[in-house]
Amino acid sequence: MQEANLSVGHVAKRAGVKVSTLHFYEDKGLIKSWRNTGNQRRYKPEVLRRVSVIKAAQKMGVSLEEIKQAFANLPNNRTPTKEDWDKLASQWRESLNERINYMQRLRDLLSGCIGCGCLSLNSCPIYNPEDELANKGSGPVILDKK
């Protein structure tokens, strides 16, 4: 078993995050540190992989709560292995694909009406008399169509 001997500053520099980020992740239960005799935080080397997984997942739009749940499902709350990452990525792929599709619809409709029902545009490519789109729901109902 590897010893927890990495300082918070070393981990922050190596992982490319701020020290406050490590403290935040620890407060959220995503990473774990130990205290030395001087009451300073110390980390095991495996925390670097854990922080990397967190950063990669966040860049994909995965929430910290989803990441925490995924970590909790690992045996003994261990640091994810490559195989674990493959499984996690597969689980998050569908959600990521949905976000990509939504962003593509947003991009394609950005210069026109997205069907919000505001009726404030003088020239709207979508004719919406009497706010008929209100019957389809609130917000950008055309954008939210799949």
Rank of each mutant, 00 (worst) to 15 (best):
P129K: 08
E130W: 07
R14D: 06
A72C: 04
D131A: 12
N101L: 14
L133A: 02
I114Y: 04
K82Q: 12
A12M: 07
A15V: 00
P45C: 07
R50H: 09
S138T: 15
R78P: 02
M1P: 12
G112L: 00
K68H: 14
K87L: 10
N73W: 03
G115C: 03
L96S: 10
I126K: 04
H10D: 10
L74A: 05
L88G: 00
T37K: 11
V141T: 14
E46K: 09
P45E: 04
R50E: 13
E98K: 15
V11C: 09
A89E: 05
L6C: 08
R41M: 08
E132R: 15
K59P: 03
H10E: 14
K87D: 04
C118D: 09
R35K: 15
N76M: 08
R49L: 14
M1S: 13
E3K: 14
L48M: 09
E94I: 11
K68A: 10
V11D: 01
A56Q: 12
K55Q: 15
S7L: 09
Q91W: 05
L74F: 04
G16F: 02
V51Y: 07
L30G: 02
L110F: 09
R99M: 10
M103R: 11
V141D: 01
A134Y: 13
K18C: 04
R107H: 13
S111M: 11
S123I: 08
C118S: 15
D131Q: 14
E3G: 03
T21M: 07
A15R: 00
L6D: 00
S20A: 12
L6V: 06
L110H: 10
T81F: 02
Q58F: 01
Y102H: 13
R42M: 13
L109V: 00
P129Q: 08
D27Y: 05
I114M: 14
V17E: 06
E46T: 12
E66Y: 01
S90R: 10
S138Y: 11
S95G: 14
I114L: 10
F71P: 02
L30V: 06
L22A: 03
N101R: 15
D27F: 02
K55H: 06
E132W: 07
E46F: 01
N77C: 04
L106M: 11
